[in-house]
Amino acid sequence: MKAVILAAGVGSRLGRPFPKSLSRLPSGECILGRQIRILREIGIREVHVVVGFKKSLLMEEFPNVCFRYNPVFYITNTSKSLLAGIEDLDDDILWANGDVVFDPEVALRLMQAGGNAVAVDRKKCGEEEVKYRTDAAGFITAISKQVENPEGEAVGLNLVSRGSLPDLVAALESCRPDDYFERALEMLVEKTPYRAVDISDYRCIEVDFKGDLDEARRLFNEGA
C-alpha cells in the first residue's frame, strides 16, 4: 500500500503566506509532518506528496518523501492534484487532503476495511463540508457538498484498491479542472462500491479556516 497526500493548494481561506499543511500544532509538528509520521507508523513506507503552492518549502521540510507536482495548482482543484498523485501508481492507495489532522486509528480503519473506503464522521455538517449518504449495506450512494439529507461528513481520507485504481484515474481525468476529487467518487459509486467507514469515535478535523486551526490545536493539544 502507498499513501498520497494532497498539499498543492494555496489555502486562501486560511489566509497564510505559506502552505496550510505547514501550520504548527501544539506538539511542534506541522499538519503534514504529523500525517507522514502516522502513515509510516502504521506501516505505509512509501508516501507521495502532491505539491504546487510554494512547493520548495514543503520539499525542504520533508526531503524523505516522494513529491509530485501539479503545475496548474492555481487553477485546478483536488481532482487534478489526486490525478497527478496516482496516475502512474499500481497499488492500493490511501489518500488524504493535506489539511486534515487525525488520530492514527482513522487511517487504520480505512486500511482494515477490505476494499475501497471513505472515512466518515456521522455529525451535523455545514455548507463547506463534503457530505455523504449510504445504502442499507453501508456503501456510499452520494458524496459532495450538496447532498440531500446527509448522514455526516466525508472527512478527506479515502482508500482505493489496486483493482479499482484505473477506474478512479479515468474518472479524475473526466473531472472539470475546478472539481474536488469527490466528484470522481460521485461518478463511480453506482458501479464501484466504496464503503463508508465510521470514524466518529476518533478525532479528525479538516482545517479550512482559522477557527478550524484553533479547534485542531485544542483537540490535539497533548502532542499525540
Score class of each variant (00 low, 15 high):
75 I>E: 13
148 E>F: 01
29 E>K: 09
106 V>F: 12
95 W>A: 08
115 G>I: 01
50 V>D: 08
54 K>N: 05
39 L>K: 10
205 I>F: 04
47 V>W: 04
63 P>Y: 09
44 I>N: 10
42 I>P: 08
176 R>K: 13
29 E>G: 07
109 R>D: 00
167 D>L: 14
7 A>S: 14
185 L>I: 09
67 F>W: 07
49 V>W: 05
191 K>P: 00
133 R>F: 04
114 G>Y: 13
85 G>D: 01
154 A>I: 00
71 P>W: 13
28 G>N: 09
84 A>N: 15
118 V>Q: 15
25 L>T: 04
165 L>F: 07
122 R>P: 03
37 R>Q: 08
48 H>K: 04
149 N>C: 01
166 P>D: 07
205 I>S: 06
83 L>E: 15
40 R>A: 08
210 K>S: 10
138 G>R: 06
137 A>K: 05
156 G>E: 03
18 F>V: 04
127 E>A: 11
179 D>S: 12
163 G>N: 10
155 V>D: 14
101 V>W: 00
161 S>Y: 02
12 S>D: 06
149 N>Y: 04
52 G>H: 13
66 C>G: 02
71 P>Q: 11
83 L>T: 15
172 L>Y: 12
79 S>D: 13
116 N>Q: 12
61 E>G: 04
25 L>K: 02
224 A>S: 02
15 G>N: 13
218 R>W: 12
137 A>Y: 07
46 E>Q: 12
32 L>W: 05
133 R>E: 11
162 R>A: 14
81 S>G: 15
222 E>W: 07
38 I>G: 15
94 L>R: 03
150 P>F: 01
194 Y>V: 03
219 L>C: 03
218 R>D: 09
91 D>A: 10
116 N>Y: 12
13 R>H: 02
213 L>N: 01
125 C>E: 13
10 V>C: 05
51 V>L: 04
149 N>G: 01
166 P>W: 04
112 Q>P: 00
71 P>N: 12
154 A>W: 03
69 Y>P: 05
41 E>F: 01
68 R>M: 10
205 I>A: 06
79 S>N: 14
222 E>Y: 08
47 V>S: 02
24 R>S: 15
68 R>T: 11
217 R>A: 12
98 G>N: 10
171 A>N: 09
107 A>H: 01
50 V>W: 08
